[in-house]
Design a binder for these strands. Structure first.
Lengths: 220, 220
DNA sequence: CGCGTGTTTGATAGCAATCAAGTTCTGTGG
DNA sequence: CCACAGAACTTGATTGCTATCAAACACGCG
C-alpha cells in the first residue's frame, strides 16, 4: 500500500517534534490495532493507563447529550498522540473516522522502559499541546462567528496537512459537530469561501487554499 | 482574618482528593504569593515549569481575540491546582478574579522531593480532570442554549461550594465570557430562573438553589 | 448620602437554526 | 461502462434565539 507508506513518512516528520526516545518506544512496545470506520476506540470507564498514537487514518473524540446533540472535542491524524484525558470517570468516547490503525501502549510499560522522568516530560508536552488546542477550541466555540469558525477549521486542517491539496477525513456533519454549527451553515460558509476565491473544493473532502491571507483574516 | 481561616479548612477538605504527599509537599516547597484583583499571574512565554495551587481567592484563565472578544477557559477556587497548560507557546493568561493567595512551586523540585512517579501520577490525575472539565465546557459552548449554559454554570458553582449559600467570586461579565454569552443574556436567564423559583439571588454575587431537580433538568 | 460601576430591563436587529426541496456524489450491480 | 439508489451535500425560505443598542435601576464604596 503506497498510501500507508506515505503516512508512515509523515509520522517520522512529526516524530521530530516529540522526544525521540519515546515515540520510538511507542512503536517498539506498542501494539498495532486496526479499527473500522465509526468503530469505538474507547468508551466510558475503560482502563486509563493506555496511550494511543495514530499510525494511519483518523480519530475523533466526542461527547453526547441525552437528546443526541453532539460535540467533537478533537480530531487526531497520523502521528498524533492521544488518550491523556482518560481519567477515572470520563463520559466521552473516541471513534475511528475511517479505517484506522493505532499504536496502543501501556504508560507503565513506557515508563519502565524509558524512565519515569522521560515519560513525565513526554506526557507534560503532549498535555500542554492538548490543553492549548482546547483553549483555541473554546475561543472558537464561544466567541467566533460561523464564518470565522469554518475559516479557522480549514486553516487548521491546511496547517496540519503535508500537501497543497488537503484531504479531509471527515464529512460535513463531523465538521459541524466540531464547530458547534449545523451541517447547513457549514455548507453555506464553505460555498461563500469558494465564491470569494479563498478556497477551492475539487471534491467534497478535498480542498486547496487559494488565498491564505484572506483566510487568515477571516479566521480573525 | 476569619475568612482566610475558613478557606484554609476548605483546602484541607479538597486535599483529600489528591495524593496526600504531593499537596503536602506543595505547601511545604511552594512559595506563597499574593495577587491583587485583575492582576496577571502568568502570561505568554513564561517559565513553564511552575505549578500553582489556590490558597484563597479565585483565578480565571482567559484567551483574547484582537478585537477584544474574550473567552474564559476555567475558574479555579481554593484547593484547585492549575498551570499544566503552560507549554512552550501558550497565548493566554491567568488572572486573579479578586485578591488571591497562591502556592507556587517548581515541578522539578516536587519531582525530586516526592519521586518522579508520584509527580507523574499527580500530574496525570490533575490533567485528566482538567481535560474532562474542558470537554464539558466544549459541549456547553458548542451545543447548549443560553438557559442551559447558565443552569449548568450555577450547578457547577453550587457543586464546588461547601455552603448552601453559594458565593460567586466573579461578576456577570466573567460569567458571560465563560459561557460564550453577553452580559445581558446572562442577566435575563438568571432573572428567568429566579422567576421560576429555581434559584434565589439574595445578592448579585450570592445565590441558593431552591429547586435542584429543575436546575439539573434545565442544564440538560 | 451621592456618585460610579455593575446589573437589569426593554425594543429591535441579525445571524444561524430549522424546515423543506433539490442536487451532486458514491458505491454497487447489471 | 453505465445506470441506479441511497447517502451526502447544497440551496432556499422562514423562524427564533441571542446580540445589540438604549435606558433605567441598584448596589457598593468613598
Amino acid at each position: 500500500m503506497t498510501n500507508a507508506e506515505i503516512r508512515i513518512s509523515q509520522d517520522q516528520v512529526r516524530a521530530l517534534r516529540e522526544p525521540v526516545e519515546l515515540t520510538g518506544l511507542l512503536s517498539q512496545f506498542g501494539v498495532k490495532m486496526a479499527f473500522a470506520r465509526d468503530e469505538e476506540i474507547y468508551a466510558q470507564e475503560e482502563e486509563a493507563d493506555l496511550i494511543y498514537q495514530v499510525v494511519s487514518g483518523a480519530v475523533r473524540t466526542t461527547r453526547l447529550m441525552s437528546d443526541g446533540r453532539r460535540q467533537i472535542g478533537a480530531f487526531y491524524r497520523a502521528g498524533d498522540v492521544f488518550g491523556m484525558e482518560k481519567g477515572e470517570e470520563h463520559r466521552f468516547s473516541a471513534e475511528a473516522l475511517c479505517d484506522t490503525v493505532l499504536l496502543v501502549a501501556k504508560k507503565k510499560a513506557l515508563g519502565l522502559a524509558a524512565g519515569q522522568d522521560a515519560l513525565e516530560r513526554f506526557m507534560a508536552q503532549a498535555t500542554a499541546r492538548e490543553l492549548d488546542r482546547m483553549q483555541d477550541h473554546l475561543l472558537l466555540l464561544g466567541r467566533k462567528t460561523a464564518c470565522e469558525k469554518v475559516a479557522s477549521f480549514l486553516l487548521e486542517m491546511a496547517d496540519r496537512a503535508t500537501k497543497q491539496k488537503v484531504d479531509l477525513p471527515m464529512g460535513r456533519q463531523d465538521m459541524a459537530d466540531y464547530l458547534g454549527l449545523t451541517i447547513e451553515t457549514v455548507s453555506r460558509m464553505v460555498t461563500q469561501l469558494q465564491t470569494a476565491s479563498i478556497v477551492e473544493f475539487p471534491a467534497n473532502r478535498q480542498f486547496v487554499v487559494t488565498n491564505r491571507a484572506a483566510l487568515e483574516r477571516l479566521s480573525e
